[in-house]
Write a protein that binds this DNA or RNA. Structure first.
Length: 433
RNA sequence: GGUGGGGUUCCCGAGUGGCCAAAGGGGGCAGACUGUAAAUCUGUUGGCGACGCCUUCGGAGGUUCGAAUCCUCCCCCCUCCA
């Protein structure tokens, strides 16, 4: 608020990957118009936004804070077409009902970052659905097939004998038309959006408008540390992630992208990041930085208090290997429990006996309870199939009260409230009815 | 419309009559190790109350004791020609 033009330009360009055509144009437009219309389009193709989206949303928020108008476009129409950017195959076709559902949650999620009181939200079906065939054809006359094929997404697909559909060519043009419809001064996007953003620039003059400027933000790398964070690759951290998963997923990133995350996800400056990287090179444990990072990210999207709790939990669960902390409560259905009178139980070793709960089977007969372990793991949702359960057991991944279950144990002695561990990451507190 | 190549398990990609639930890689999962859910190494990766049975190699039929593999028709992708 009330920043000078120079200050604004500086803040706008902070952390961007590229600004086109030039800083001079940006300055000139702010000077002549005062308030700029800043466009960001999101296609509702999945249920949730990721912290990768947050990078660009935060930039949009910066514009808001300086008094500019944020125009958030929910691409309910373009989602139907499918953005080919960065894709090695066509998107699966979504139904309008899917998209409508996603669109609703998108606006809510964007609200975590944007000032929703001041944002202008538009659905692009508002104008795109109304385009006539004639208008559509006019739009397609703005670009040649050769230029379309130039873009890498298409050329690699073409060379790789992977189908490209005609409607995919339309995508960038439609996005460009969005800019016409909202009279954008600047459009934001990730670096992979450059082609689409420039299309707006190309199209706008034909509709008598001054071409928009283009601002791209660096991409946040996914949790695998290699690919771009994306929902289709499954390497993402959603904004709606539970604090536990959010913290955990940050901890799972490779060390070499810690800096990338600090800079993009929590807005640390390049200098701060460089200092951290130096410290790590000199032998400081990267895990400590990652804990700070995970806490900062969780704090940003949840709250500092929750983030602190998750940090403690993480240390307990993984550094100290405390399964109690992460155990999930489950109740075992009666039909998975076998009650055996004591004489039968005697065939088990003395070592086992320590784990038996002696119960009264009625009529003065004492017995023990045994759990049918494989079906139990399936029915309680710990694994997907019986084979998976058997596999885990034979790999020594399943433990009851710290004791490894062997593949020979079909029925295992069990007491109420015991801790069942399935691998390193999952644990269950087992309750009998 | 014609021509040549191709459609294999989550993905990529071998396999061209039985030894194929199908090589190899990726991804996933597990174990060991560790500084973490990183890296590395090793194992594992269709289902099933399982030394056997069921489902799977674009789809539908057929040949055969036996088919991912051969034949017929169909669908789809890519190439080149129109």
């Amino acid at each position: 608020m009330g920043l000078s033009v120079d200050q604004q330009v500086k803040r706008i360009l902070d952390g961007v990957d590229e600004f086109l055509p030039s800083e001079g144009d940006l300055r000139a437009r702010i000077e002549s118009k005062g308030t700029l219309r800043v466009k960001l389009g999101l296609d509702p193709t999945h249920t949730d936004l990721t912290i990768g989206h947050a990078v660009v949303l935060q930039k949009l928020r910066d514009f808001q804070d300086m008094g500019h108008t944020a125009v958030l476009i929910i691409g309910d129409f373009t989602a139907l077409v499918g953005d080919p950017s960065g894709r090695s195959k066509s998107r699966p076709q979504l139904t309008e009902a899917d998209i409508a559902g996603f669109a609703k949650t998108f606006a809510d999620q964007a609200g975590h970052i944007l000032d929703m009181d001041k944002v202008e939200i538009r659905y692009n079906s508002e104008w795109l659905a109304k385009l006539s065939m004639r208008e559509t054809i006019e739009l397609t006359q703005k670009i040649t097939v050769a230029r379309m094929l130039e873009r890498q997404d298409f050329s690699t697909r073409y060379k790789g004998e992977i189908p490209i559909y005609v409607h995919e060519f339309l995508y960038a043009l439609l996005q460009g038309y969005d800019s016409v419809a909202v009279e954008a001064d600047i459009e934001l996007g990730g670096t992979e959006q450059k082609f689409n953003l420039l299309m707006g620039r190309q199209v706008m003059p034909d509709y008598g408008q001054e071409p928009q400027m283009v601002l791209t933000m660096p991409l946040l790398v996914g949790t695998d540390g290699v690919e771009k964070m994306s929902k289709s690759l499954g390497n993402y951290i959603a904004l709606t992630e539970t604090p536990r998963d959010m913290f955990g997923k940050v901890m799972s990133i490779p060390d070499n992208v810690i800096g990338n995350y600090f800079q993009l996800a929590v807005g640390r400056t390049a200098d701060e990041v460089a200092a951290m990287e130096r410290a790590m090179e000199q032998g400081q444990n990267p895990m400590d930085f990652k804990l700070d990072l995970a806490e900062a990210i969780t704090a940003r999207f949840h709250s500092p208090e929750i983030a602190k709790e998750e940090r403690d939990n993480f240390k307990a669960a993984f550094s100290d290997r405390d399964k109690e902390a992460i155990a999930e409560e489950v109740i075992v259905p009666e039909h998975l429990i076998v009650r055996v009178p004591l004489p039968d139980a005697k065939q088990y070793t003395e070592d086992d006996l320590a784990f038996y709960a002696i119960i009264n089977l009625g009529e003065g007969v004492e017995g023990v309870m045994l759990l049918d372990i494989v079906p139990a793991m399936v029915e309680l949702g710990m694994v997907g199939t019986g084979n998976e359960a058997r596999r885990l057991i034979s790999q020594g991944a399943v433990k009851l009260s710290g004791r490894r279950i062997s593949p020979d144990d079909k029925l295992v002695p069990i007491k109420d409230g015991e801790l069942l561990e399935v691998g390193k990451k999952k644990a269950y507190r087992v309750h009998l009815q």
